[in-house]
Write a protein that binds this DNA or RNA. Structure first.
Lengths: 149, 149
DNA sequence: AGGACTGTAACGGCGCGTAATAGTCG
DNA sequence: ACGACTATTACGCGCCGTTACAGTCC
């Protein structure tokens, strides 16, 4: 307000972090990532820390967690930043998430492999389709196949 | 029926391909991957080709397509197998999917990078939490810190 | 004939997309 | 005072998970 804190409103934030307006509003609504201020008229104002949290959350998405779990993990990571505010059980919770992250990574690697295979598969299909002419157009002679423009 | 075709029922198929019973039923219901036979009493019977299609569809999931699009792509790939049954426009459709596959691969790679970063992040958090003892347990002297079991 | 498996039908829910309508900012 | 942006509210959807209840297989 009176200090040098820089606030942005929802549209700019959505562009910067690559999330939709709807998603930002929803995440605020459920307490996952609420803007830390509002204008007099009700416009959401995101601080720099708010934006960082959004980026962190966005990077969590590939782990396949529910939004509740993402909130929990983000809180854990924030608490791990300064050793003051930690709570009993944090270590266990966090190491559980570490394991889930490892599993998610394996799954992503498998999926990436599949995706590469599928792309190759599609490429082969395209080659085959392009090799044979359209059904009704028959080649006049065997050597005429070379005329493919 | 009378020939050597091997049929499996839904539970076995679910185990083999790693999809839930509900998913198999739903995919059949919407025409994405229906079993090619039923028993007299109504039990679904999946042929070997049915199972292959299911595997193909499962590998498509990371591409982020809708089920309708997955059906379309699977049909295109099947038609590309033998050059006989192809249809005008298949090449264009298929190459559009090729592009989407490429984009999906880029996205997956980004996500994989993020996931690695996040895992490292969690690891650092754990290290920090483990480094400092629980709040209420204060060391008796500075040199006593070495007694960590 | 009993237990494992499967069938259909129905409701529920997450994570938003998508209006519709009204208010706010520079 | 204009246009761009934003607010809230509400409905809908895809993709199944999850009962509940009944029937089928060996």
């Amino acid at each position: 307000l009176s200090d040098g804190e820089r606030f942005r409103q929802i549209g700019e934030v959505a562009d910067r972090v690559g999330l939709s307006l709807r998603t930002l509003r929803y995440w605020g609504e459920i307490g996952l990532a609420a803007p830390s201020a509002r204008t007099e008229g009700g416009f959401r104002l995101y601080s720099e820390k708010d934006v960082e949290r959004l980026l962190l959350l966005k990077q969590m998405k590939p782990l396949g967690l529910t939004l509740d779990e993402m909130a929990s993990l983000a809180d854990l990571l924030e608490r791990a930043q300064d050793p003051a505010g930690r709570i009993e059980g944090d270590i266990e919770s966090l190491s559980a998430y570490a394991e889930r992250a490892a599993e998610a990574i394996e799954k992503l690697e498998r999926q990436l492999d599949w995706a590469h295979g599928l792309r190759a598969n599609i490429g082969e299909g395209l080659d085959r389709l392009r090799a044979a002419p359209e059904p009704r157009v028959a080649p006049r002679s065997a050597s005429a196949e070379r005329n493919v423009g």
